[in-house]
Design a protein around this nucleic acid. Structure first.
Lengths: 222, 222
DNA sequence: TTTTTATCGATAAAAAAATATCGATAACAA
DNA sequence: TTGTTATCGATATTTTTTTATCGATAAAAA
């Protein structure tokens, strides 16, 4: 209730869902408690870091035992608000858009796409996983009427800014952007960019360095 | 040739493709040179940071003018090796797998999926964008024969580790993992995890804080 | 030519994040 | 009981990353 609003580091926020997912599978094995040492071993992370991350959710562990998995899962659900459903709109029903629509895993994180929009008349009217594709013109109006706060952009680069503007006009406050575009938003609107090229670049650069260093010929020693 | 291997910060690696994509579009407008101030303005980043990032690719700018866009693009291509094609295998032709297969943007980054694998007989034999889906059993052998170094995992969580092991057995050195699993790899193998839940968690937490702070009711002031 | 201005490159300072240390405590075994 | 051990929580240190500062330089203007 009177929880103080503390700043949580972004790297921590990104790791927490990882723990959550992992803990779900551990709980399914019948285990009741788990230590950071154990988690760290399975997830290839340092125990002190895990402890620090988990502390942000407000949970306490016990020496010699660790954390109650069920309590921990509840803390994480509370922390992120995953027990309440966030309804979202998706714009752009191309390859990525379709994959997002079909992805089942989101409901675990309290996230649900309730309508999709596209400007292509060929796709408007179709349905994917019970979500109907509507013409883009209907977006702003429906946003405000349904009080939607999250929008997903999966359009081409050049349509992205315009779509974002329409979303904001309709009252959307958080934009999850999959288009390779730098979208400008006013203060008070959150933008989260997903960028496949970034991950690919990191991977290929590391691989390049590995190949150059010649280590790739060595036997694996642990 | 005798370039020294310097460590490049990961955040820099993740930003560089962003600049690249942006510079491509700027070049298309006919412009020849550009300053960090200008880039920063369009991409919402601080000029000194952009300058530092670009410096890692070994390029030099000119006071009062900025950087030659074409030279800059070439530097980036050289830096990442995007002018050589990296061939990759994909395992798991579900929603995400299909989206990755159909995605056109990868070739810009010297990345190409040349074969796909799945264990489901219903999908084996089908083709997506000229890439044929083969039975998973053929993976290790084909890997070594084609000297494939990059593998993409888009399977379910429980299949991920086994697939990774097979990839490594076949000689794959870099794994781009889209499954929500913590894959263990021996030294000398790079693993790059993509995790949609992470981005979603960051977005929803920021949004939550925004709503709590009450700022969302304020008018936008710049 | 000389002055002004925009921008770079290098360095320094600050902030953020990861990692290490260490005393305290709860469970277990002797 | 009492000692031992695993693990926590808090704090301190180190590393990494971001942000700021400032002199130097090239182009444009006076």
């Amino acid at each position: 209730m009177n929880k103080q609003i503390v700043h949580v580091p972004e790297p921590t926020l990104r790791r927490l869902p990882l723990y959550y997912h992992y803990l779900k599978t551990v709980l399914a094995t019948g285990r009741e408690a788990i230590s950071c040492t154990h988690i760290g071993n399975d997830l290839n992370l340092d125990p002190p870091q895990i402890r620090k991350d988990l502390a942000y959710t407000g949970i306490r562990g016990m020496p010699k035992v660790g954390y109650q998995i069920e309590t921990l899962l509840n803390s994480l659900e509370d922390f992120f608000g995953w027990n309440r459903i966030d309804e979202a709109f998706l714009v752009g029903v191309g390859n990525i858009g379709k994959a997002l629509l079909k992805y089942e895993g989101f409901k675990r994180y309290g996230f649900k796409i309730v309508a999709a929009f596209d400007k292509d008349p060929a796709i408007v009217g179709k349905s994917f996983c019970d979500v109907k594709v509507l013409p883009i013109e209907k977006l702003p109006n429906l946003c405000s009427r349904m009080k939607i706060k999250i929008g997903v952009i999966a359009t081409s680069e050049n349509a992205a800014q315009e779509v974002a503007d329409q979303m904001i006009e309709g009252g959307i406050r958080g934009i999850w952007n999959f288009a390779p575009a730098a979208i400008k938003v006013p203060e008070g609107v959150i933008i989260q960019n997903e960028n496949l090229a970034a991950g690919l670049a990191v991977l290929s650069k590391k691989l390049q360095l590995l190949m150059q260093s010649g280590k790739f010929r060595q036997e694996v020693v642990k």
